[in-house]
Write a protein that binds this DNA or RNA. Sequence first.
DNA 1: CCTACCGATCGGTAGG
DNA 2: CCTACCGATCGGTAGG
Lengths: 199, 199
Amino acid sequence: MSPRRSVAAARDTREAIVKRAVDVASTDGLEGLSFGKLADGLQMSKAGVAGHFGSKEALQLAALEEAVAVFERRVWQPAAHHSPGLERLLATAQAWTEYLGGDCFPGGCFLTAAAAEFDGRPGPLRDALAANAKRWRWVLIQEVEAAAASGELPADTDPGQVAFELAALAAGANQDRQLHGDELAAPRALKAMRRVLSA
Amino acid sequence: MSPRRSVAAARDTREAIVKRAVDVASTDGLEGLSFGKLADGLQMSKAGVAGHFGSKEALQLAALEEAVAVFERRVWQPAAHHSPGLERLLATAQAWTEYLGGDCFPGGCFLTAAAAEFDGRPGPLRDALAANAKRWRWVLIQEVEAAAASGELPADTDPGQVAFELAALAAGANQDRQLHGDELAAPRALKAMRRVLSA
DNA sequence: CCTACCGATCGGTAGG
DNA sequence: CCTACCGATCGGTAGG
């Protein structure tokens, strides 16, 4: 009578689809996802894939959610246990540039690529990407404010400016790494981030 | 007997297609281009559009070529008549951030968006985008080297590092401007570029 | 989770 | 530069 086994199996299947969708979208873009191609790669029928999500947009949102979880695990979690302020900012810079220089997704940082893809197309995906980016920016600003309040950074520090520069350096490192395979990009971004945080 | 009029008309038509393709691609991506959609917007038949290019990839390459020309006209040309070295770098920073804060393309900097879209897909488009980015980076590095040689920047300046930081700040400004409509992004990038160039 | 199907759109071509 | 067409793939659904 228990539906447990089939429910668990369905959950596993859905997870497998989402994981593959994240990888595909990191190289082909979120719009490049299709039920048919995912089904081929997973040895499933197209309707079997589509049934887990109902619409392409729901699949794209699920892939985005998974990518956000990966980013938090790889970038924020290693820094979170450090003391607030400058120490945590430096740990974030370290984890962030390691993430950008690594091979977490085959096509580079999913969130940067998706933001570039959807920044001109209104809708739920753009909204979710913008909200996520704002939330991450807010986290950075909080840490800069803490560093300025404790005297680790000058009292007249502009937190929005500092957070902008950190995010820009990350975006630039991702671009150089992906477009040119430049292994110097991540260390260069880390060096620049440390200078931004040493004023 | 002269084919002049029809040849000129064909050239004008092709130019109109390319201009529209650049605008569409700046919001929908280069892969989002299609002969059919362009034809609808231009009141033409699909085959009439396709005939000018032969393949979708040729259309995409033509749009890229046009976007490169726009970038050079808007960013490089205003700076080119300044003296080499620091003065030209500062003029470039000014023109670059004005370009990023303006409305040159409806979806923001075409080249940044296209690079993010194709950095994981081998082929002629990726090659052209990478070559263009490298060329622009080389221009920046040349100017930084000139500034270092003349003593406007410290003798131990790392030109690749400085050029990386300038490009990253531009990419970051474009992202914030497009995703959040942030009007502070371009001035923040200019401020940071000036600091990078003031060491 | 499958097979089978829907209408729409895709890139591209034939023929004029 | 047009009409008309090709096979392929798209997102999505019916029915089981």
